[in-house]
């Protein structure tokens, strides 16, 4: 693991080159280009706002649009990063079987590119906050810590899923469905208060839901996440990283034979 961390530093220019390429490729040939980074979440937000603000009104949430946006943006980072990371190793057979390519940086690239996308869409959130006259709390200064925890969690999960997907191609299909499922189980469209007591476990035991709750706390409510949330997130991060690196370490040698 130490060895791999050192490699990450050694290959930082390679990672950076892949990330910039990845970002450039994403919108290559499209007329609006980079604007899509803003337009995509904006469109999603418009639809969800329309439905849950005007059609099926979600009770007890003021400034629904901003509330929704706060939870939706980190979720888009999670879901895009994980689905791209899962297929990243399996789809790079040409690199792994024919050159001495460090496979463990492959799942990291989508985590970084989608993180950058998230950062780019943050100003949009701040503009909506300003329009809705929501105060900018000092707890915002701790947002980078939360982002770092989410980043490392995604790195671990990406490595785990990317490695397993070489063996079980089913994972990339399962994950697509699982992510839809998880999206509705995270309090992005609703607050934990909207959840009936007998289903509260789906929030309390869901580490990704704790991330959503923490974003709401830091950005909208101006308070720190609960100790419980922090413990769950840190525990999940450690677990993901350990599982990711262990599985990768044990199986990466045979990637070249399987791809």
């Amino acid at each position: 693991m130490n060895h791999m961390a050192r490699q990450l530093i050694q290959f930082k220019s390679l990672i950076w080159a892949l990330v910039t390429r990845h970002l450039a490729m994403r919108y290559r040939g499209s007329l609006l280009g980079f604007l899509w980074s803003f337009l995509n979440p904006l469109c999603l937000m418009l639809v969800y706002s329309l439905v849950f603000r005007y059609y099926a009104r979600m009770p007890g949430i003021s400034n629904y649009t901003v509330f929704l946006f706060t939870g939706l943006l980190p979720w888009l980072w999670i879901s895009s990063a994980l689905s791209e990371a899962t297929s990243s190793i399996a789809s790079s057979g040409h690199l792994i079987t024919k050159s001495m390519f460090p496979a463990h940086i492959l799942p990291l690239v989508p985590v970084i590119t989608n993180f950058i996308n998230y950062l780019l869409s943050l100003p949009l959130l701040f503009i909506f906050m300003w329009i809705d006259e929501i105060p900018f709390h000092s707890t915002l200064l701790f947002l980078p810590v939360l982002l770092a925890v989410q980043f490392l969690t995604l790195q671990g999960l990406g490595l785990l899923l990317g490695s397993l997907n070489v063996y079980f191609r089913d994972i990339q299909h399962i994950l697509g469905n699982l992510l839809t499922f998880l999206f509705f189980l995270c309090p992005i469209l609703y607050t934990p208060a909207n959840v009936p007591d007998q289903f509260r476990f789906s929030i309390d035991l869901n580490p990704l839901a704790q991330f959503t709750i923490s974003y709401h706390a830091l950005i909208l409510d101006g308070v720190f996440p609960s100790l419980y949330s922090i413990a769950v997130m840190l525990g999940f991060m450690a677990l993901s990283l350990i599982a990711g690196y262990m599985v990768f370490d044990r199986h990466s040698e045979s990637f070249a034979e399987l791809l």
């Binding site: 063996y167 079980f168 191609r169 089913d170 399962i174 045979s254 034979e257």
Partner: peptide, 11 residues
């Protein structure tokens, strides 16, 4: 592992 069709599935 040589045979491409031989991917293990989760099932």
């Amino acid at each position: 592992t040589i045979k491409k069709a031989g991917y293990t599935t989760i099932k």
